[in-house]
Each structure stands twice: as C-alpha cells, then as structure tokens.
C-alpha cells in the first residue's frame, strides 16, 4: 500500500485555481520529486498535503486514512511534516529552541531529548551553534536547521520545498547527502520539490513534472530525464549540477 496517495487534487487561492487534477503516490521510505518552473504550483501542492491549505476538491490519504481536511498541526502528529519554502526558521529563538519546537506535537516526550542529541550529532554545526539565535545562522546552516527541526517531529514523510534555494554548489552537495540520509538513517519518505532538477534527479527514484498546476509528465527518473517536456522546460539545466 502507498504511504501517501493524492487523488485528483484541486487547489487555489480566492478566484484563482492553482492545481488541477493532481494525483501522486509516495511509498514508505521512497524519495519522490516534483519538478516544475516558477509559479507551477509546487508549493501550493505541498501546502495542501501538509494541511496548511484546504484543498478545493480531491482526496489525500495517508497510511490508508483520509487526511484531506486535516489541519497542519494534526497532520504533523500523523507523521506528515513539511519543511517550508524559505526555511522559516524562528529567527529570534535559539537553535535549540527551534529544534525543540519541531517536537512540539509529539506524545513520546521522554524521547525528545535523545532525538535532540541525535540531531546535534548528525548536524554538528547545530551542536556548535546550540545557543545562538536562528537568525544568526548562514543560509546553509538555516536549511540544515529547518530539516533537523522537521526530523524532530519523527516524520514518516518529509515534504521538502526547494531546500537548495540560495545554497552554494558545495552546500547543495551536502544537502544531497542529508536527503539520502533522511531516507536511510531517519527512515522517512521524502517528497522533494525542486527547481534544481540536477539535485532532485540525483536523489529521487521517481518524479513528476508540474506545469501550470498540472502534471505533464511522470515516471521513473531515468525516463523523465529523456522526456521531451522535461527537456523543453529545463533546457539542459539538469547538467548544471553534478
């Protein structure tokens, strides 16, 4: 059975419809990517799955249960966790406070401290900057904090919205390792939204291509790489990043 199933989803804001007829599946501990140009509706799709935005139509189920209209704070406790676009670190709070907030919704509070140490062991920089304000971290460090904060919720699926935005090629490489470890070490599925097709294609097993709110291509990464739509929309962008 699929972990996440989205069927015929429609989303929008006010009079505007953004996503139409979007269907997607993600299996347990699978990395899937959604690619698409600016304004294609990638973030809107993730906002709907995470519960921040009520879908207009369609159905979202997670682990066999209907979660279509579940608000974000309740979706988190089911294991649907989003790391939002732009990281959205709490800049006035310390790194450690940010991490603890990630575990806010957990009932197994006795395990939170152990997870905190685990994050600090995995992301060494976060241990060094423990007492520093989130706003004092560099962009790359903030991205790691955002991912670690998401992992503190013990996600079963982590929704990552353009984590590579604004990162140097070196940091993008580090990020690639982290995403693979989200699956391998932290046992969560990943739904990765990216404009950086090179990064996305190097970690994901399958992908969907979103254009004007609809999927125009989908399938295993090897097939997507050769897809004509893909070539038209990304015109060799995939070669840019190793």
């Amino acid at each position: 059975m699929n972990l996440l199933t989205v069927e015929n989803l429609r989303t929008g804001y006010g009079p505007v419809t953004v996503n139409r007829d979007v269907s997607i599946t993600v299996d347990a501990a699978e990395i899937v990517t959604v690619l698409g140009p600016n304004g294609a509706g990638k973030s809107t799709l993730l906002r709907a799955i995470s519960g921040l935005l009520k879908p207009r139509a369609g159905r979202i189920s997670f682990d066999g249960e209907d979660v279509t209209n579940l608000p974000a704070d309740r979706a988190v406790s089911r294991g649907i966790v989003m790391v939002p676009e732009g990281r959205r670190i709490f800049v006035d709070m310390t790194v450690q406070e940010n991490l603890r907030l990630g575990a806010y919704g957990r009932r197994d509070r006795d395990k939170v401290e152990a997870d905190l140490r685990r994050m600090e062991a995995y992301f060494e920089i976060l241990a060094q900057k423990r007492q520093q304000k989130g706003g004092e971290l560099s962009g790359g460090q903030q991205q790691m904090l955002a991912i670690a904060r998401g992992l503190m919720a013990r996600p079963r699926i982590l929704l990552l919205d353009e984590p590579s935005l604004g990162l140097s090629p070196k940091l993008v490489k580090d990020l690639r390792g982290v995403i693979l470890d989200v699956k391998a070490t932290f046992n969560a599925a990943v739904l990765l939204v990216e404009q950086n097709a090179g990064l996305a294609m190097s970690v994901a097993a399958r992908g969907y291509l979103l254009h004007h709110g609809r999927f125009v291509a989908s399938g295993p990464i090897e097939n997507l790489r050769d897809d004509q739509m893909m070539r038209d929309l990304y015109l060799g962008a995939a070669q840019k990043v190793a």
Binding site: S50, G51, L52, P71, A72, D73, V76, S77, V81, M82, P84, R88, F90, V91, D92, M93, L101, G102, Y104, G105, R106, R149, A153
Partner: peptide, 11 residues
C-alpha cells in the same frame, strides 16, 4: 512570529 510555521511544528 509565524502562525503557519508554528502549525507545521504541530502547535
């Protein structure tokens, strides 16, 4: 500070 992100923390 940020209601949406707070909700994403499970708050």
């Amino acid at each position: 500070a940020d209601q949406d992100t707070a909700a994403l923390m499970g708050i």
